[in-house]
């Protein structure tokens, strides 16, 4: 089992490396090089050459890649085109904001989703199950911006309960802060939970067709115990996987949500960077997002391995 886990982590590291190549090469094919963008109108052939030499941009691509990778590893993310601020300083607060948002979403949606998913599986075919199934199906079928738009329409425009835009001022009280965050939070929780509820239910019902569930029924085991003890423990692997995948999905979910609510997070920073062609900034942000994603997926796989009783208790 240890070997499987180590194996999975090693594969993850390789994947991370391939991802970094993709991000680097992907952003390198953006039109115009950094020197031209930075110097803009003032560029002369001499100043361009000088800038390139200074930043190592005249080096072959693979050497640039290695030095970029070194920079990433040591926290030196380079210098943004905009005003020459270091990217670390730009990202610093933004990353915190995004993590804060994601953490609250995770803390609320994971237990909620698993509970609702189990509930639906416990009473299949009843109205509880039907409502949950149809509700979540509708929610996963619509784009995040649709849900966000509806939230704005109902909660901000019609009811005037919440502000349509999330601004966090440093001196806001916790309650004010939560009010400000409510819109993006609710949107993300809905989006992420819908998927997790469905997958939890499906994971349990998948196990429910096993002969050992029929045996449990024939032993007179009550419904609740069948779901919570007999089915859940066998479905844990897939469920953990779904949870991790959806937390990873938060990564792309925040892109749209931060844009709609003008939330000052990392994704917003990256979209801005894309629009202003701020190459080093986009590279750094993309690497952080993709890195988080890969790490979460590895964690999911490791959890699945660890939850398998056959692997945990060898013969």
């Amino acid at each position: 089992m240890q070997r499987m886990v180590i194996n999975r982590i090693l594969i993850g590291i390789v994947t991370l490396f391939v991802v970094s190549i993709l991000v680097f090469v992907g952003t390198s094919i953006l039109p115009g090089d950094v020197a031209e963008i930075v110097l803009g109108q003032a560029a002369t052939p001499e100043s361009l050459a000088a800038y390139r030499a200074e930043r190592g941009l005249d080096q072959p691509l693979y050497i640039q890649f290695i030095s970029w990778l070194q920079g990433m590893a040591t926290g030196d993310l380079g210098i943004s085109k905009a005003g020459g601020a270091t990217i670390s300083s730009l990202i610093d607060g933004r990353l915190g904001n995004t993590m804060y948002l994601a953490a609250i979403v995770a803390v609320i949606s994971v237990p909620l989703s698993i509970a609702l998913g189990l509930l639906a599986a416990m009473y299949p075919g009843t109205w509880i199950d039907r409502v949950l199934t149809f509700g979540t199906l509708s929610l996963i079928s619509v784009p995040e911006f649709f849900i966000a738009t509806f939230m704005v329409l109902i909660l901000a425009v019609n009811l005037h309960w919440l502000p349509a835009i999330s601004r966090i001022s440093p001196d806001a009280t916790f309650l004010e802060e939560m009010r400000g965050l409510a819109m993006p939070l609710i949107t993300l929780i809905i989006v992420v939970s819908a998927q997790m509820i469905r997958m939890t239910r499906a994971g349990i019902l998948n196990v429910m067709n096993s002969p050992y569930i029929e045996m449990a029924i024939l032993k007179g085991v009550p419904r609740k115990r069948i779901i919570l003890r007999h089915a859940f423990f066998n479905a844990i692997g897939p469920i953990v996987n779904v949870v991790a995948l959806n937390l990873a999905y938060l990564v792309s979910g925040v892109v749209v949500v931060e844009t709609i609510f003008a939330y000052p997070g990392l994704a917003k920073l990256m979209i801005d960077g894309v629009q202003t062609r701020d190459l080093p900034l986009v590279q750094a942000c993309a690497m952080i997002f993709c890195g988080t994603y890969v790490v979460l997926i590895i964690l999911a796989d490791v959890a699945a391995i660890l939850s398998n009783p056959r692997l945990r208790n060898p013969k």
Binding site: V14, T15, T27, P31, V282
Partner: peptide, 22 residues
């Protein structure tokens, strides 16, 4: 499979943004 894993481990909207912008 490894190449595919790498593509899959990029969030789709992120990858889309990069390609479309480029």
């Amino acid at each position: 499979s490894r190449a595919n894993d790498a593509i899959l481990s990029l969030p789709s909207i992120m990858l889309g943004l990069l390609i479309v912008v480029a």
